[in-house]
Write a protein that binds this DNA or RNA. Sequence first.
RNA 1: GCGAAAGUGGCGGAAUGGUAGACGCGCUGGUCUUAGGAACCAGUGGCUCCGGCCGUGGGGGUUCGAAUCCCCCCUUUCGCACCA
Length: 832
Amino acid sequence: MSDQHHASGGYDPAEVERKWQARWDEQGTNRWTDAGLRAAERPYYNLMMFPYPSAEGLHVGNIYAFTGADIHGRFKRLQGYDVFQPIGFDAFGIHSENFALKLGIHPMELIPRNVERFRTQLRRVGLMYDWDHTVDTTTPDYYRWTQWIFLQLYQHGLAVKKEAPVNWCPSCNTVLANEQVIAGECERCGSVVEMRFLSQWFFRITEYAGKLLENLGWMDWSDSTRKAQENWIGRSEGAELHFPIARRRAAEDRHQPAAIEPEKPVIRVFTTRPDTVFGATYLVLAPEHPLVERITAPERREAVEAYRRQVAGQDLVTRKKTDKGKTGVDTGGRAVNPATGEEIPVWIADYVLMEYGTGAIMAVPGHDQRDFEFATQFGLPVVRVVAGPGEDADTPLAEAYTDNQAGRLVSSGRFDGLGHRAGCDAIVAWLAERGLAERRVNYRLHDWTISRQRYWGPPIPVLYCDACGIVPVPEDQLPVELPHIDDFRPDASGISPLARHEEWYRVDCPACGGRARRETDVSDTFLDSAWYFLRYPSVGYAQVPFDPELTRRWLPVTSYIGGNEHAVLHLLYARFVTMALRDMGHLHFEEPFVRFRAHGLIVREGAKMSKSRGNVVVPDDFIAAWGADAFRTFLMFLGPYEEGGDFRDEGVSGPYHFLTRLWDAVLTSTERPLDPAVEQKLHATIKKVTEDLEALSYNTAIAAMMEYLNAVRAGGRTPERGAVEPLVRLVAPFAPHLAEELWERLGHARSLFDEAEWPGYDPAKAVADTVEFVVQVNGKVRARLPLRRGIGEAEARDAALGDENVRRWLDGGKQVRKVVFVPDRLVNLVVG
RNA sequence: GCGAAAGUGGCGGAAUGGUAGACGCGCUGGUCUUAGGAACCAGUGGCUCCGGCCGUGGGGGUUCGAAUCCCCCCUUUCGCACCA
């Protein structure tokens, strides 16, 4: 890759791009003043997911994402919208901190350096950002409001502190997110991860589970993202059933029905199959279930304790593996099946999770495969209570019968014969009469743990007072600044590095003036990114997180583009925070991103890019060699934007070649009337490109422009000025520098993006007068005839029958039985 | 296991019921050039007895007509995963 590409026609991308980037900077192109934002008439908030400024610099995946979004923004701007397109830096978090640790540089030094590098690189790509409205989540004037959001949630009962299990890496001395634990091991050092119980702050996102799910129904989102979120929230409809704990009695009495005593404690289970309750032959509790102590029989205590210890020593990921076989122990305790009145054993097993449902299940081995495996392994009874077609209550079960469509209840007393739906309704109603059941909807979504025992994040703004307990930091004392400490490395204690600095955490209680200490954990990075889009328009306002008037004008976000890797994290958290703030009266809308599009992933030579494979694209090299415009166009040409593409290095020459040919065509064009065929093609191309840009079909838009340019230059003809000038505007979103330069050379004084309009087209002119008709005989193409547009069926048929080749296929006295006519396209002669 | 997407030339991909392979890469031949590159022109799915025939993962179906719709199967990728 050298300067040799630039031999032809004088197109020198490096020079053009330097010139226009400097000019955009000088003239403040794309930047809004506060007054401008307030007065905007057609606001279009074009948002893209802000990057985490890694030390490696801008990744080609970032550029792919940003370029696609930038093209959308530039397109909308040319269409006359007031496009607000900001960018920022998601610079807090474990990723950044780990990198700082690795390099031995303090994050307060390293991060600003990375941010600077990112700014430079982003400019170099020609992205249309409003550099006067950027956010950096690590600055006190930003995280002051992150802390404010925490306090709002706390005051509304949506932030609570409770003990919870977390993944702990004994070698890195830190809590790990579930995503950072690979097959039970730390993703960074390979140590086996332990489970620890720590007191954590949680956001009660589950309060909004129903709303979060429901709104997905009407939002204009990529289907893949919507589905991922639906799965994650995981709604299950069913019932909570109560199994009274049985009084301890002699074994020989147990076959007698037990009296259910209402005041006795019950074991609550959640089930989606209450219809199968007659087949519940035992219960299983999560090992951590609070009732385990109480029900365990004295002679089983030792075994139960041993099992609980074993499970506690396991990391969460290993525990949730499905292929390791079932383990569990009998507690010796017994409960009463509320339907049959029989006493059944109570077990504990690690396949029952405390955090889902009630932490206890009724096991129906006949009709649940997991229960079936467990029952088989431990010799527990299997009872059939659902029979499929051709089966009855005595048909043996080789595996669980789980069909809830065809099955009918058997051995279920007066409910025999009912189907799944009716069975559930009837049985729940029957048990509910005695207070032993209630309908219930359960969600898989868990509350969001936001505590991080790390340094690099916003301190959680609460105090613990010896006298008053938990005391929120008063709003007027925000931000709680993150102090500069040198020993920011986390250690084995399970508490934050800030907890080693008494001079920082020792404070007086703002309520009573007594001794208090600050919370020393910081909050999750995902809280920083859960509200950044609210801040952008109000950057610079020190007294409010988001100005009400600006927010009303610019939010919710008009268009959001980002990666599907955040389908269930960032996008869910941002929705939750928005809903909560709305319910508190701070916002006028409930959904922040009404339209969201997920872009695809770039692979290289068919393989995922990774440092270990050594196949990572270094964008700077490509930009230096071919220019940002060619690189942008190339990336968008790889494949459908929403599906990603395969990066092959040689491929960049195609789009580069296109831009060079466009450059030559514009500069050699002459002022003269348009050839009618060219004019028709021009209108068709404008139509195609406009529609494709609207749909983010960038690859086909580029193909259409290439095709048009080929037609304009066909056979080495000199292009008409009027044929290429609109093409400069069409290509501008993709290759903005080149377009600006050509626009200027065409005699315009101001920036194309300030002055030009998106080209319009005349639908009547977008179609040719003559169309190529396909003539088929029995569905096979036998001729192609140029015919007048709009021709009628009779005329088209006659023309087809007049064709020599077609006649050959009709030889032998075959009768035309039917004529299929598709206007302006095809005639199919069906012969018998 | 559940959910989603996808399978088309040597390669990336286009076509969502009507001309399969647009556009580009690569390749072949030519022009120009001391040469290489660049640029430009022409060609490029397979087979062919030059009439055509075959061809969109495999098999079946609907239709005048199927890459596209329906059924069965195979493969790949991604997400979730003992969620009761």
